[in-house]
Simulated scan of single mutants.
Amino acid sequence: MSQRPKLGAIAVVISEGHVLLARRRNPPDAGLWGYPGGHVEFGETALAAAARELKEETGIVATPVDYVTNIDVIGRDAEGGPSLHYLLAAVRCDYVGGSPIPADDVAEAAWFPFERVRSGDIPMSERVAEVMDQAIALRR
Rank of each mutant, 00 (worst) to 15 (best):
V40F: 02
E41R: 13
D121M: 10
V13G: 05
T69P: 08
E108P: 02
E41V: 10
H85F: 12
Y95C: 00
A49F: 04
A107Q: 14
L7S: 09
P36K: 13
R116K: 14
H39D: 13
V61C: 11
V40K: 00
Y95A: 02
A135H: 08
V13T: 12
I60W: 10
I136T: 00
D94L: 10
I136P: 00
A11Y: 01
P5W: 14
R127W: 09
D133E: 15
A110K: 15
A129E: 07
A135V: 12
G31E: 00
A89F: 15
A62T: 07
R23Q: 12
E53M: 01
A89W: 15
E57L: 10
E126S: 13
A109N: 07
A135E: 11
A89K: 15
Y86N: 13
I74R: 10
G37M: 05
D104L: 13
L54A: 00
L84D: 08
T69K: 06
V12Q: 07
I71L: 15
N70Y: 14
R92T: 04
C93A: 06
G80C: 08
Y67H: 09
R25H: 01
P5E: 12
S83Q: 09
H85K: 11
A22E: 06
S125F: 03
G97I: 03
R4K: 15
V65Q: 05
P27A: 13
Y35E: 06
I74Y: 03
E130F: 06
L7D: 08
A49V: 06
